[in-house]
Amino acid sequence: MRGYLGIDVGSVSTNIVFTNEQMEVLDSLYIRTQGRPIDAVQRGMAQMYDKDGDLQILGVGTTGSGRHLIGAMVGADCIKNEITAHAVAASHLNPEVRTVLEIGGQDSKIILLRQGIVVDFAMNTVCAAGTGSFLDQQASRLGIPIEKFGELALQSQNPVRIAGRCSVFAESDMIHKQQMGHNTSDIIAGLCAALVRNYLNNVGKGKNIQEPVTFQGGVAANVGIRQAFEDALKVQVIVPEHYNVMGAIGCALLAREEVHNGEKSSKFKGFEMLDMEFQASSFECDGCPNHCEVINFKQNGKLIARWGARCPRWEVG
C-alpha cells in the first residue's frame, strides 16, 4: 500500500495516521506520549507495520511540540507547527470552513480561515484551564470514565454555574457544589459551560467567529463541551470523523505537497528505524554568555542532528 504518514507528537498523546494517495485515512493511532516521545512513535509505527508489512511511504510530516525531535528521527519531509497543520486538515475536509476550535491535552487554539487561508489564530497563553488534562483529572476525581463525561453532561436539566476562570478555583467550586447536594450531571454540565466560557473569553477574545465551525482535538470527543459551544455561539458545531488526529492528517497533507504528490523521493528512513536506538541528550555550551542548551541527537550511537545553539559552532558537518 502506498501513501503518506502524518505524526503529531503532542504533550499528552502521539497521533499517527497513514493515508492513501487520495488522502483517505486508512489507519490512525492515538497513543499516550507518557513523556517519552521517541518510544511512543516507535511503538505506534511498529503497530502499523505489524498490521500491514508492505506499507510504502511516499512522504512523512511531523507536527506538535515534539515535531523537531521526531522529524529528525523518522526523516520527515515536512516539519510544521500545529496551527498550520490543523488549519490545512480542516480546510482539506471542508474547504468552506471559517473557524476551527481545537482543544488538546495541554493547549487550546482558535484558527480563523477565509477562503482556505489562515487569517488569524490564537493559543492559550498562561492558563491550561479547559484543556484535556484538566477534564481528565476531574473525571477521575469523580470516578467517571472520561468517555462517559460528555453524555452525562447532556443528561443535565439544570446546569449549575461553576467558576471556570482557573482550574484550581474550578475544582474547589465543583467540590463546593457537590457538597451542597447538586447532582453530578448538573455539575459536569456546569463545568462544560464554564470551560467553554473560559475558552471564548481567553483564546477566542475579540475573534470574529463565523460558520462553518469545526471542533477538533481530543476534547471534541466530549459531547457536553460540543453542546456548550453550540449554546454559547448559537451556531452548529461540526466534529469531523477523525477529530482527534486532525493535526497528523494536516502534516500528512503538507508532506504530500512537499514531495509533489510522490514525484520527489521522500527523506523517510524506512521501517528499519524501528530497530534502531535513538538517544537525545543535552549540554550547556560555555563558549559565550548565551549558555545555549544544545541537544545532541544520536542514531545507533552516531550523531545525526543537533539543535538549540544560536551560533554555527555546533553544526553537524
Binding site: 507547527n81 496551527i83 489562515v118 489564530f121 493559543m123
Partner: peptide, 8 residues
C-alpha cells in the same frame, strides 16, 4: 506561534 504567523 511565530512559525504559524509567518506561514499565515
Amino acid at each position: 506561534r511565530i512559525e504559524a504567523f509567518v506561514d499565515l
